[in-house]
């Protein structure tokens, strides 16, 4: 595939993402008229639904989808493993453990605009990142496979602690924990968008700067180093930048699975492994995919919304399997 052909795929993806942005806020149980576009500050129900509920929710889905997909791209390159995502390394389970503790203990406070649950989630995610990296570093075994296995072990350990806390908690807390663990965008607001945007935008900027290094690191550490890349410094920087970005996403939206594995893999099939194209493609694909899934999640039943994490897995799973076993050559 030539660079020109890849550029055409990217332009198509940009068009598709724009189409998602322009259409999805209009889709919902309550039909809204075009008037809402011209009176964003009016107190009518239509206007409130459109500007204060649907638009922030679509923007949140775009940001979260882009960030989750990008996190997968970076971790798969750093660990040279198609299954690696910040989730695999325990970021999601760390955040979930933090939220579970906050919910079980019933702590309520707000600090710099963040609720106790959000702070607990962020701290839990940071704790798991620090544990995986710290343990690997202390033992002198910072190879991709060791860190990946360490992350999986920490992930299982945290998941077991969550189950234990859920088992010991009352029915109300247990349900709230379960609901949070499903990943949900129904709490979207302009505040949550503003909370998440710095995490995702800074993550995208940092990763985009390092697209050349990611290409080389995805081959082998030795190749990257012999071509001039400062391997350890770059790996560390990307590991922490992306983990923090995904921690921010989980804090605001809960753990929405599968996007980080599926979106980068589909983009590799569509556009190849060169991160110069793969990074923007994954950002666009992840953003559109989560936006569409969330639109489906809030329209699938007329009585209640389905958490988007369930929709991404239900839609993504079979589609991913079909792609893997179809005749098209898979880069895995």
């Amino acid at each position: 595939m030539t660079d020109r052909a890849k550029s055409k795929v990217l332009v198509t993806m940009v068009g598709f993402t724009l189409l998602c942005i322009l259409t999805t806020p209009w889709l919902g149980q309550q039909l809204t008229s075009w008037d809402v576009l011209f009176s964003p500050r009016a107190d009518k129900v239509d206007t409130i639904i459109f500007w204060q509920i649907r638009v922030p929710r679509v923007v949140l889905a775009l940001l979260a989808g882009a960030g989750l997909s990008l996190g997968g791209v970076v971790f798969q390159a750093l660990f040279r493993n198609p299954l690696a995502t910040p989730f695999t390394l325990g970021v999601a389970s760390g955040a979930s453990l933090g939220v579970t503790i906050a919910m079980v203990t019933g702590i309520h406070f707000t600090l710099v605009g963040l609720s106790a649950t959000s702070l607990a989630s962020l701290l839990g995610a940071i704790l798991s990142i620090a544990l995986v990296y710290g343990v690997a570093r202390a033992s002198g075994k910072t190879s991709p496979s060791t860190m990946l296995l360490g992350g999986v072990a920490i992930s299982f350990f945290f998941s077991s602690l969550i189950l234990l806390l859920q088992y010991l908690s009352d029915a109300g807390s247990s349900f709230r924990i379960l609901h949070w663990l499903m990943g949900d965008l129904s709490r979207a607001s302009m505040d949550s968008v503003l909370q998440l945007a710095p995490f995702v935008i800074s993550g995208i900027l940092i990763v985009s700067i390092f697209h050349k290094e990611l290409n080389l690191l995805s081959i082998t550490d030795d190749i990257a180093a012999s071509r001039g890349v400062d391997v350890h410094r770059t790996q560390k920087l990307l590991f922490f930048a992306v983990s923090l970005m995904v921690a921010g996403i989980i804090t605001v939206c809960g753990p929405i699975g599968f996007v980080g594995i599926m979106a980068p893999h589909i983009c590799r099939i569509l556009i190849g492994a060169n991160h110069r194209f793969l990074i923007p493609a994954s950002i666009l694909f992840g953003a559109s995919f989560l936006t569409l899934c969330d639109t489906l999640a809030r329209n699938i039943t007329s009585t209640a919304e389905v958490p988007v994490g369930i929709v991404t897995a239900i839609l993504g799973g079979p589609f991913f399997l079909w792609l893997l076993f179809s005749k098209k050559k898979s880069p895995i």
Binding site: H211, K212, N215, I219, T220, R227, R268, G272, N274, I332
Partner: peptide
């Protein structure tokens, strides 16, 4: 080189210019 590497020949060769030009592309 491992079989899993799916870069094209041109992409892979261009990457070796990293130390001179600062990049793969």
């Amino acid at each position: 080189l491992a079989e899993r590497i799916s870069f094209t020949a041109t992409e892979f060769i261009n990457m070796s210019r990293y130390a001179h030009t600062g990049g793969a592309s």
